[in-house]
Write a protein that binds this DNA or RNA. Structure first.
Lengths: 126, 126
DNA sequence: CTCGATAGTCTGCTTTTCCATATTACCTCT
DNA sequence: AGAGGTAATATGGAAAAGCAGACTATCGAG
């Protein structure tokens, strides 16, 4: 039996030279995903939902994280405009991290993905 | 000026022994994220939205992917119940990949995240 | 009998991510 | 004077992810 080309493949066909609009959208999407992947990023964002927190406060809220990791992940989140870093030139130094509007607006999408995970958690490996 | 504990920290406070419900939810969430992270996973899922595809067909639709990567990513997606692999014991071998219901239901969450990425793309690094 | 197509697997390598352990600089408290 | 807290940086190593290229088995076409 022959397989008679189930459906026109608009996605693949338009991407011979990587110029189709779909590909560009996928790339943007990937960038968004990359902005929130990282072992602690989601936990950090979820912690900050309740309000701004200081560096050490976050560290205590995330048992197991190293200073290095926290610094790195926060820097990354700030670089992507998801959290806002505010350093107060006091001594001892005080640095506060808060969600930006982008960070706050991220939560509904988290909610959607969480609902999905809840529905299909039994088939999710690991 | 003193900082008077902006808000009760329900998340951090309950997680001293990693037993709070929020932590468990974050872990579930992380599992969902891990199921869709990987350099080609999203492109594969987006390709399959139009209908089932064969291995080689997918490979041609994703220029730049290696056989190894495609095999691996598909296996991973199948392991997480997002795609369904159907091998027909013919010769030459024919293997078809299709989105499962979980995979189809994933699309709206992709849409939400995509909208977010669209709105804030100018501050996304990289 | 060799060639090509299919859907892989196997091996070795590079890059990225993750993690632990120092070390810094400044100020306060004792 | 010395201990302690704060927010980092620096260094070095382990683990995971990604990549290229060679190899397999089967069958039909030429």
């Amino acid at each position: 039996m022959e397989k008679q080309t189930i459906e026109p493949r608009t996605y693949g066909d338009e991407c011979d030279g990587c110029t189709g609009p779909e590909r560009i959208e996928v790339m943007r999407f990937q960038r968004a995903i990359r902005a929130i992947t990282g072992k602690w990023k989601i936990e950090i964002v979820c912690s900050l939902v309740a309000g701004p927190m200081r560096f050490g406060e976050l560290r205590r809220a995330l048992p197991g994280i190293t200073q290095h990791m926290l610094t790195e992940q926060l820097r990354d989140l700030a670089r992507n405009g998801i959290v806002i870093r505010t350093a107060y030139p006091e001594v001892p130094p005080r640095v506060e991290y808060a969600l930006s509007q982008a960070g706050i607006d991220l939560m509904p999408t988290f909610g959607a993905l969480h609902d999905w995970a809840l529905r299909y958690q039994d088939r999710l490996a690991d």
